[in-house]
Design a protein around this nucleic acid. Sequence first.
DNA 1: ATATAATTTAACCAAATGGTTAACAAAAGT
DNA 2: ACTTTTGTTAACCATTTGGTTAAATTATAT
Lengths: 203, 203
Amino acid sequence: MVKKKDLSTEEKILVAAKKVFVENGLSGARMQDIADKAEINKALLHYYFKSKEKLFEVIFKEATAKLFPKINTIFSSDIPLFDKIRQFTHDYVEIVIENPYLPLFVLNEINKQPHAFSQKLFGNDQPPVHKLSAQIEKEIKKGLIKPISPAHLIINMLSMCVFPFVGKPMIQLVMNIDEIQFRNMMEQRKTMIADFIIASIKK
Amino acid sequence: MVKKKDLSTEEKILVAAKKVFVENGLSGARMQDIADKAEINKALLHYYFKSKEKLFEVIFKEATAKLFPKINTIFSSDIPLFDKIRQFTHDYVEIVIENPYLPLFVLNEINKQPHAFSQKLFGNDQPPVHKLSAQIEKEIKKGLIKPISPAHLIINMLSMCVFPFVGKPMIQLVMNIDEIQFRNMMEQRKTMIADFIIASIKK
DNA sequence: ATATAATTTAACCAAATGGTTAACAAAAGT
DNA sequence: ACTTTTGTTAACCATTTGGTTAAATTATAT
């Protein structure tokens, strides 16, 4: 457990802000709440980060920086399809296990301002789905996997990786499981998702 | 297109409130905004629904009433497993296509207050997963499908049904598709998800 | 030591926000 | 006709909230 006393004021603010923003969203977060959690005066927040929006942007960028580059890298890497599926699902679930509240937070904000976000995340580059899509198409043509729309396959994969975290409280409710059981299940999903997908598409 | 003039004041409020709450969440929604959209005075909101929270609760209940009872019914119905999977995924995707913004809205609020929500939704009854779980276990023992944890299978199914809507703007961004293309894909998923699952688990 | 820059705080402010009040209008009972 | 209930509004209020200011304290450089 890291004690806040060991951190610089700026770090303390970031730790506190992350928690408050992720729990409450942009509009639900209170600057006073962040200040209290960071054990500083509210004016200091504005001294370090000019406004609520500016502070939020820092937190949000940190969050997306964790969640997106990995997709990019693996999607466009040069390994065989099944390996790619195994690696992506494993690594992605691992990332999200370490940051279980980020997906819902990020998805919310993308929903609220898709345009602003698109530019920020991808700039002028094309998102990296095409390479993976092409790879899937090629495997189908070669007769190595069953026919399936690449878009759907990718959506399925992403869904099974991310959704359990977005729907965590609901899943815990419906399935009546506690934190530890949930965590264990997510650990299992690191390999289970790939097995499930590959079983479905391999000939 | 239904004109608001034809609706009673209460209905006008509900229509407006649903839109504002679903778009902005509880904390992000403004009572004035709802009043404006319903073309009434703000005080009337408090005349019909005592407070913001009360109004929210009505909207929220309406939303969950759409999303949850279906799960219940199908999960505990007495049809063969594959039929059940086909029916659930089809019906559920259909419901969510008609209400694409409800899942994110509902998941957010469950996240913010899981306890209050649990009681409201299920009361004292057990959630209805057990029957489906048992059915899956039985099929595995009979050797009709490959071994898989029922919990994971159910989570996978739910993920593929719901996530595309929760992550809609992100998916549109990453895959570079417009509203119509997205809608078409979701239509396809009514049958595709079941095919995908069954292909994975059948022997 | 002294001047300069970086941190930190208490007090304050304007705008936004949920909610109330009192008066008025329309509808429904009698 | 008139009394009561229901529906509607403008004006107002208290609180919350993001943000500012000016002064004080601490660290840093000269």
